[in-house]
């Protein structure tokens, strides 16, 4: 990775960090052997064109994944041209280490790991790899792109617009998540497999403390697509392409697939617990029945019926 990086960019990076330090140190110019060093103003301007987004996302899933969730993963792969798909990974306790290794092997900088448990629950790990944070989500309300109700379509590999609802700036962990989503779901500008034009838009919004994901195609009346004026902007409509899913953040870790816990969702209940609760409500049916029977018997014994005076009437 280091080899590929252009010299100019490396230089600008160091300059940028220097500039930051200087800002911290109350604007004092740096002393060098030849005298006072000028503030690197023109270099700072160069810093922006020097920036190159080299995000690569590794997308994998655990073994024994559901077909539905596998399709969701494939949809995500088709949406992200800057991703690399890898083989399934055994979901064990040590999966974090293997995944880290895998990411390094594949030269990626972030990872999406779809972990399916009990063929029922899908967890999504979203990690920035060498040393960034990682987040574990529970995925709900999955609709894949194959569903026929989602009628839109767009170019494969065109860069999406990312829209975020305003409540992403509400709290620290949301801000972190937003930054991660931008880096992972945004396709790097000038990526080889990306196409020009922007004909779809991702909507991330927080409702009920969940992140809801939607993908829409941008449809503008045909004859006007060459030059869009303000009037046709009004006529612009969106058609949903899919997939849909809803992410419930569970935990945020400091490292990639591990490290100190930075955030823990205080409202989270694992689906296992929910199922256990439901089962518990259903249990004790037989015990209840037996109990009712014995109670009835006791009642009958304690209040015997008085003998019927007409009982023998028809006996003769």
């Amino acid at each position: 990775m280091g080899k590929k990086r252009k010299h100019r960019e490396a230089e600008s990076d160091t300059n940028g960090s220097e500039a930051n330090k200087e800002d911290a140190a109350s604007e004092r110019p740096k002393r060098t052997l030849l005298g006072w060093k000028e503030k690197p103003k023109e270099n700072e301007d160069n810093a922006t064109p020097g920036f190159r987004n080299k995000e690569k996302v590794l997308v994998t899933c655990s073994r024994r994944i559901n077909f539905r969730y596998r399709h969701l993963m494939l949809n995500v792969v088709s949406l992200l041209p800057h991703c690399k798909k890898d083989n399934k990974v055994e979901s064990k306790e040590t999966k974090g280490a293997t995944l880290n290794e895998l990411v390094e092997l594949r030269n990626c900088s972030s990872c999406l790991f779809f972990e399916c448990r009990k063929h029922l629950d899908l967890y999504l790990w979203m990690a920035k790899c060498p040393n960034g944070p990682s987040v574990k989500f529970l995925v709900n309300a999955v609709h894949t792109m194959e569903e026929l109700k989602l009628t839109g379509n767009h170019l494969k590999g065109s860069r999406p617009l990312l829209t975020f609802s305003a409540n992403f700036s509400k709290d620290a962990h949301w801000m972190l998540l937003k930054e991660m989503l931008i880096q992972i779901f945004g396709i790097p500008k000038g990526h080889q497999k990306s196409k020009p034009y922007h004909d779809h838009v991702f909507a991330f919004s927080i409702v009920d403390d969940h992140i809801w994901f939607r993908n829409y195609q941008i449809a503008v009346p045909h004859n006007e697509s060459d030059k869009v004026s303000r009037g046709s902007l009004e006529k612009m409509t969106l058609v949903e392409v899919g997939p849909r899913f809803c992410l419930n953040p569970i935990k945020i870790f400091g490292g990639s697939f591990g490290g100190p816990t930075l955030y823990e969702n205080p409202f989270y209940v694992s689906p296992n617990q929910i199922r256990a609760l439901q089962k518990k409500q259903k249990t004790g049916k037989y015990a209840k029945k037996v109990k009712a029977k014995t109670r009835r018997k006791m009642h009958e014994l304690s209040n015997p019926l008085e003998p019927d005076e007409f009982a023998d009437m028809w006996k003769e």
Binding site: N53, L162, T163, F164, G186
Partner: peptide, 9 residues
């Protein structure tokens, strides 16, 4: 590079 928009409604 980001292409991100915050929508405040």
């Amino acid at each position: 590079h980001r292409l991100s928009v915050d929508v405040d409604r």
